[in-house]
């Protein structure tokens, strides 16, 4: 069985699933997030990310907890949750796969990659596999156009994708082998990364390179030709 999880396509909170893993420690964490801001309602988005880290979706219990802490209505929390595409109505997979199909990536191969991923996983965008391992999303431009065509796993970059690389990626993830983002750490899970988006560091900032090759093209040429932007005589 597969199910749709994006608010954008399916409406409001799923109240048929009342399950939650939010405990006292999680509530304390939500309160700590609220205290970061001069006006606590500003914490609503990171708090929603945190709820997803715990409950794998925006759960009714999460909405209730946030509303209580921020002293706003549950409808106000839901109004925000349903506006942004990264908030999920139904549990996302352990690994959330994004394939960029905005114009440039689509033209350069993104459409073909999406077709392939759909076939391999047996799900359509907006769905999660039966075993909960993968969910799939057609993503809009992810600010990595010089690495096109681009895929994202758990919002980590998988640059310059090809059908072979995509096949290998999905196979490795399915079998629990280590997969390293082309510009980031070894992939763990979508829920783990939701914690980072909630502002809770995971100690992996030093993983991965400083930049991918395309980011350095201009600098490489300038270095080879002895070109510099800073004034002569200044040590850089």
């Amino acid at each position: 069985m597969t199910h749709e999880h994006d608010f954008a396509d399916t409406g409001f909170l799923d109240t048929t699933d009342q399950s939650t893993a939010i405990d006292r420690a999680a509530l304390d964490q939500l309160e700590a997030i609220a205290e970061r801001y001069p006006v606590k309602r500003s914490a609503l988005m990171p708090m929603l990310h945190f709820v997803q880290a715990i409950d794998k979706r925006v759960s009714p219990a999460g909405v209730e907890a946030i509303a209580k802490i921020l002293e706003i209505t549950e409808a106000q929390v839901q109004g925000v949750a349903t506006f942004y595409t990264m908030y999920k109505r139904r549990p996302a997979g352990r690994h959330h796969i994004g394939v960029c199909t905005t114009a440039l990536c689509a033209v350069m191969g993104g459409d073909l990659l999406l077709e392939q991923v759909e076939q391999t996983l047996g799900i359509a965008p907006g769905e999660t596999t039966e075993d909960g391992m993968f969910s799939l999303e057609k993503v809009e431009c992810n600010a990595a156009c010089d690495f096109a065509p681009v895929m994202m796993v758990n919002w980590e970059f998988m640059d310059n994708m090809t059908p072979e690389k995509a096949e290998q990626l999905l196979d490795d993830l399915a079998k629990g082998r280590d997969v390293t983002s082309t510009r980031g750490p070894v992939l763990t899970s979508w829920a783990d990364n939701e914690r980072v988006l909630a502002g809770i560091p995971d100690g992996k900032a030093n993983d991965g390179p400083s930049a991918g090759e395309p980011s350095l093209e201009g600098v490489k040429i300038a270095t080879a030709k002895g070109w510099s932007g800073i004034p002569k005589g200044v040590r850089s």
Binding site: A205, N206, S210, A211, L216, G218, K225, G229, R235, S236
Partner: peptide
């Protein structure tokens, strides 16, 4: 025309994202 790396000039350097590396280059 020449390129003028200013913002990008340290992007490829060792651990460029750290405070130590940034301070080491001014």
């Amino acid at each position: 025309m020449t390129l003028t790396p200013i913002l990008t000039r340290n992007w490829g350097t060792e651990r460029s994202w750290t405070l130590a590396a940034y301070q080491a280059q001014g």
